[in-house]
Computed example of a mutant assay.
Amino acid sequence: MSTAFTTGQGPATPGQVFSLIRDGRALTRSDVGRITGLSRTAVAARLGALLGSGLVVEGAEPDDRGPSTGGRPPVHLRFNRAAGVVLAGAIGRSRTQLGVCDLDGAVLASVDLDQEVGPAAEDLMAQVVAAFRDLLASVGRSPDAVRAVGLSIPGTVDFDRGASLDSPIMAGWDGVELAPFLRPLTAAPVFVDNDANVMALSERRGHLERHRDLIFVKASTGIGVGIVSGGRLLRGASGAAGEIGHTKTSSAEGLPCRCGDTGCVEAVAAGWALVQTARERGHQVDHIRDVVRLAVVGDPDARHLVREAGRRIGEALASAVNLLNPEAVVVGGDLAQAYDTFVAGLRESVYSQASALATRELVIVPVTHGEQSGVVGCAAMAIREVLDSAAVDRALAHP
């Protein structure tokens, strides 16, 4: 008997049955009955609701039959990933990445929007809605097929309101709820989170399959981390968990940060700070991606800047490793495009400054989904919110 349904919890709901099927733990009606203890009539009732919703299909493919044990062979139940789509948008200071994904998180179509630095929310969101409309048309789906929208923005986010709380990088966005901008396109629920958090969730089909405790480092224009403990994302009391970029460091003493304070790690290691330094040294660069491209082709000055950024971020990260004892540190963001150079500095600081016990089995690994991790993570966040057991039960009760 599965431990998912304990004595006193009550009969398994349709949403819980859906989770069994979606996770591959129940492949047939007999499996559902055996795992949940439900009667055949109760199993039929719950599956009837799920089949009617389109989230589950039964025996839809010729080879979708289980092994025969004599008599009529059983037909398989399976999650219908094509029963709708989710829209995913990773909003950044100078680039926004958008995608349409199926209900299992696979990206069906995507596009990047290059924008003026620091756009107003109403201007950029109008472009986002138009681009989402075009992406839906490109995959032959209508807005009615949208089950949820997942968005990410840099900085601290009020998850419940779907608005930025504090983002020095996205000036003018604080307190602006993003869901109303999507209403001309879809009435589906809109979820908004910090960019590092959603990139951590992108590892649902990646490092989280092996490591239930990890820290995701996003090193781009700004610096942040997403923290997953025991498979659960940690946001903190006010959504500020992981704001490691504004940790004080002696190497930045007296240097102004975009947050309005001085002495933050970002002042010496964030993309915006590296661009300033590169310009002072005579390089014609506009974005951290330009600095990274120089480092990748072997420019010694750019390589030094990227490695030093890794070292400074690693100094702050070492304390987090001691505190949280993760199994893995996953590295993503623009600086990760110069992975070997950046991680050389990061590894040097983490392994020299964190405790031997905390680093004994620690691995430092690259992001699974590369530059699409923001889109994949936004989709994973939205899917988790609308397809968990309780959400499915609510949807079936109020279709």
Rank of each mutant, 00 (worst) to 15 (best):
R360T: 09
M1L: 13
A82N: 11
E327K: 07
C257V: 07
Q353N: 14
D393A: 03
R232D: 11
S229H: 08
D63A: 14
D134N: 10
V43Y: 02
I21L: 01
G70H: 04
I153M: 15
R95C: 04
G230C: 06
D393M: 06
D213Y: 00
D261E: 15
W272A: 12
L255H: 09
H283I: 00
A121N: 06
R72S: 11
R183S: 13
H287A: 14
E243T: 00
S352H: 14
T156M: 14
T221N: 08
H304M: 13
L136Y: 01
H246E: 05
G70R: 03
I153S: 07
L208T: 02
L201F: 05
A316R: 02
R394T: 13
P11F: 07
A60F: 01
V291F: 04
T221S: 14
A26H: 04
R312A: 13
L55P: 02
L387T: 07
P154Y: 04
G298I: 08
P326N: 02
A395E: 14
V375Q: 11
G84T: 05
V190E: 09
I313F: 03
D166K: 13
R384L: 07
I364A: 06
G54A: 02
G150Q: 06
R29W: 02
G10P: 05
P399S: 12
R81V: 13
S355K: 05
G298L: 08
